[in-house]
Design a protein around this nucleic acid. Structure first.
Length: 826
RNA sequence: GCCGGAGUGGCGAAAUUGGCAGACGCACAGGACUUAAAAUCCUGCGGUUCGUGAGAAUCAUACCGGUUCGAACCCGGUCUCCGGCACCA
């Protein structure tokens, strides 16, 4: 490295040690102080930080350091989402125990965090794989169980054949495993579920309260929860005393029902066909369906296939008899698993009716005088209209009919208004080792019984075999499996599945408030002080999964009186991806830039500065090696400036008065930068524009210092402010420059500079003169002129007179402080 | 298919409330310094036309139209790209 470059290696190391030795980042509850809880999503300890991490944590660190300087009591903790499959895969592949592998990775990554200079309070570090943490995870699970929100159910579940485990609906992305990309199949298994559906309505309606969340994320959650309002209606079945209940969002179309469809898995199907001629064809239909993966089963492109099952249903409104089918397009686990089909007004039903030659009866005509022509119908009519063929409801608008028919079926006792959600209960069992053991015990006499709370944690056994095949590795540990029933003391068996790691991450922000509590998951006092998280920062890929689960946990813990708030995150920032050559950095594409390499070559400050400058936080960031060079050049430029002036500053006065025009210009530039940086960090997180305004200030300083006559007091103030406002972005070099300019030991937590309104006030203001909206001239006027004065000043200006000479002025639009638009006849 | 979001120089971007389009940076070009290079410093840098020149005119924020004194920004339509959901009755 050339000697005219600043020695980032030595400087960064020294300051990191200083911060650590001085314990500057330790945080405590300070009664009365304004608190700010700033959190970045904790990482999975894969072993190395990638550029996305660097971006995430740099963004957070700027805010943390800034808010600290603004005098807030800032909580900025970090931890590890340290249970998960990669550790176990490493165990299978290399024979390393997942615990060792994980702890080695955490140690390595903790060093990388420190080398980036992120201001974390490491005393609060938590790891979800730590028994001291998962003890309380198990405690929370037991609270769910005790409140009837955790249950075990046998169900066809999503099964990833490659990960050899079940997956939650949220972890299946269009039919494939979101971890490994394998096509997800179905398997009939008895699994633990959390009843998140009980919270569907609150998770939905409380989104309105989250004003500090991006609209996009709220919309994604809203769509995921998928609320539908409608009615449930009972249809009779001919020759049976059973009633078939269906859910519909369109009770107005009840008179248009021409057939019924059950999901093939619907329990009625076997009963209704048993012993008859349809039993065998139905069995074959079901068998064929079993071989379909989820992706094929639910694809829109899948040809609709159905089978008449030999029975008729009776429409409770008009007594019409309609055939009953089973079909692949009806889902067993939504609504009642059965539908009434109205081909005239539902496209799916229409397609099916056309294929199987079923009747189509329109019950809604388009508004105005148009009529539906059933014989020439090309597609279902799904718009609004006027009721026909619907007995006493004819003539109503279909909207009115929805209400009146719903009221009618309620009155007759054949149905009721109803709400359905797309959201399903959360399947949380995993057939893997490296996760929190589900603290439940199966007793033949007592059923499922939770482990006694005083016996927690239920520790992960160490005598297991990692085969990666079939069942949970915990089943191979006899000492783990065999136990006694906490209720009756009889012989019993432990649950051998572990929890989905998304549970671990659904409450860590609470534990971080009180990381070492041995008596409870977190204390009320500490969470009351720190919660909610004032700003949460992470990738948009967690918009649904993690952020929905965390909201669910918080609401539940609030309901049982453990947590003081029912929404965890007041403000959310979803940062954009880091791209290289237009694509997401990934090993498979081979476009990964390693943070380590960049930090070694340019230092952490340069890496941070580039990442923060190249793009606004929420947008994608295109990696540019040349851009990194540019950021490095800028830091050297600042360092040279400060080094050159350092001696002068030591003898400079603390006060100054701007005398010359140049003095005032510099004073103006500095104060504008302070205002801009304060507004940008404190407000909309416009870090890129904050940095550009600092660059402008540096350019102004370079110009100023070359002048024959400079003001030492002004220079001192300017450089002091410059170092302070740059410090949240590039803390190491700023600490060093702070020292070089003769200030105190560390600038961490130093008061953030205020800008001076007086310095920003200008005597004269430039006014743009437009003719018919096009800029023609500029002229200066005294600041603070009103509309009339501005127009008068303009009329007096020779250039303006020239512009309007010989033209008919129709109108003058004056915007004080900005412009004057002269509208002339064309 | 449905629901969102975005489209601005060679590139990353800025324009915060409808008011100077392109700040800041990258790349590039020219100059200074140097035996030379690197580094550094200075200058230029959307297109077209005109002018020897300072400069002037004109077009330009995906495309077409509208509202407005004035539109990158608001409205309607089209195209492209990105994201989410994807037979949810």
């Amino acid at each position: 490295m050339a000697e005219d470059r600043y020695d980032f290696e030595e400087i960064e190391k020294r300051w990191q040690k200083y911060w650590s030795d001085a314990g500057l980042f330790k945080t405590h509850e300070i009664p009365g102080a304004e608190k700010y809880y700033l959190l970045e999503m904790f990482p999975y300890p894969s072993g190395k930080l990638h550029m996305g991490h660097v971006r995430n944590y740099s963004i957070g660190d700027v805010a943390a350091r800034y808010l600290k300087m603004k005098g807030l009591n800032v909580l900025h903790p970090m931890g590890w989402d340290s249970f998960g499959l990669p550790a176990e895969n490493a165990a299978i592949a290399k024979g390393v125990h997942p615990n060792l592998w994980t702890h080695n990775n955490m140690a390595e990554m903790r060093e990388q965090f420190k080398r980036l200079g992120i201001s974390y309070d490491w005393d609060r570090e938590v790891a979800t794989c730590d028994p001291a943490y998962y003890k309380w995870m198990q405690w929370i699970f037991i609270q769910f169980f005790k409140n009837g929100l955790a249950y075990k159910k046998k169900n066809p579940v999503n099964w990833c054949p490659s990960c050899e485990t079940v997956l939650a609906n949220e972890q299946v992305e269009s039919g494939v495993c979101d971890r490994c990309g394998s096509v997800v199949g179905k398997k009939e298994l008895s699994q633990w579920y959390l009843k998140i559906t009980d919270y569907a309505e609150r998770l939905l309606s409380d989104l309105d309260r989250l004003e500090g969340w991006p609209a996009k994320v709220k919309l994604m959650q809203k769509n995921w929860i998928g609320k539908s309002t409608g009615a449930e209606v009972d249809f009779g079945i001919e020759g049976s005393d059973k009633t078939l209940r269906v859910f519909t969002t369109r009770p107005d179309t009840l008179f248009g029902v021409t057939y019924m469809v059950l999901a093939p898995e619907h329990p009625f199907v076997k009963e209704l066909t048993a012993g008859g001629a349809y039993e065998e064809p139905v069995r074959q239909f079901l068998e064929k369906l079993q071989y379909l993966s989820d992706i094929d089963r639910t694809a829109v492109t899948l040809e609709k296939e159905g089978l008449f099952i030999g029975r008729s249903a009776i429409n409770p409104l008009n007594g019409a008899k309609v055939p009953v089918y089973i079909a692949n397009y009806v889902l067993p686990d939504y609504g009642t698993g059965a539908i009434m089909a109205v081909p005239a007004h539902d496209q799916r039903d229409f397609d099916f009716a056309v294929k199987y030659g079923l009747d189509i009866i329109p019950v809604i005509d388009p508004p105005a005088d148009a009529r539906i022509d059933v014989n020439n119908l090309k597609e279902a009519f799904i718009a609004e209209g006027r009721m026909i063929n619907s007995g006493g409801f004819n003539g109503l608008s279909n909207r009115e009919a929805i209400e009146q028919i719903t009221a009618y079926i309620e009155e007759k006792g054949i149905g009721a208004a109803s709400v359905n959600y797309r959201l399903r209960d959360w399947l949380i069992s995993r057939q893997r080792y490296w996760g929190t053991p589900i603290p439940m015990i199966r007793c033949d006499a007592c059923g499922w019984v939770p482990e006694k709370e005083e016996n927690l944690p239920v520790l992960l056994p160490t005598d297991v075999a990692f085969t990666g095949k079939g069942e949970s590795p915990l089943t191979t540990s006899k000492t783990f499996r065999e136990t006694t029933c906490p209720l009756c003391g009889g012989k019993a068996e432990r649950e051998t599945d572990t929890m989905d790691t998304f549970l671990d991450s659904s409450w860590y922000f609470l534990r971080l408030c009180d990381a070492h509590n041995e008596k409870e998951a977190f204390s009320k006092e500490k969470t009351a002080y720190w919660m909610a998280v004032d700003r949460y920062i992470g990738g948009v890929e967690h918009a649904i999964l993690h952020l929905l689960y965390a909201r669910f946990f918080t609401k539940f813990l609030c309901d049982i009186g453990s947590c003081p708030v029912d929404e965890p995150f007041t403000n959310l920032l979803t940062q954009g991806m880091v791209l290289k050559d237009g694509k997401k950095m990934s090993k498979s594409v081979g476009n990964v830039v390693s943070p380590e390499e960049i930090v070694n070559k340019y230092g952490a400050d340069t890496a941070r500065l580039f990442i923060l400058f190249a793009s606004p936080p929420e947008k994608e960031l295109e990696w540019s090696d040349a851009g990194v060079e540019g950021s490095y050049r800028f830091l050297n430029r600042v360092f040279r400036l400060v080094s050159e002036l350092a001696e002068t500053l030591k003898s400079a006065p603390d006060d100054y008065t701007s005398v010359t025009e140049a003095d005032r210009a510099l004073d103006f530039a500095m104060n504008r930068a302070i205002k801009k940086v304060s507004d940008d960090i404190g407000g909309r997180f416009g870090f890129n524009t904050a940095i550009s305004s600092i660059m402008e200030a540096v350019n102004a300083l370079y110009k100023y210092k070359e002048l024959p006559q400079t003001n030492a007091g002004l220079l001192k103030a300017a450089l002091t402010d410059l170092i302070l406002i740059l410090s949240p972005f590039t803390p190491h070099i700023c600490e060093e420059m702070w020292r070089l300019t003769g200030h105190g030991a560390s600038l961490y937590g130093e008061k953030w500079p205020d800008y001076s309104e007086a310095a920003l006030a200008r005597d004269r203001t430039e006014i743009v003169v437009q003719v018919n909206g096009k800029v023609k001239e500029k002229f200066e006027v005294e600041s603070g002129l009103g509309k009339e004065e501005l127009i008068a000043a303009a009329r007096a200006d020779a250039r303006v007179q020239r512009l309007i000479a010989g033209r008919e002025v129709l109108k003058l639009v004056a915007v004080p402080g900005k412009l004057l638009n002269i509208v002339v006849k064309q």
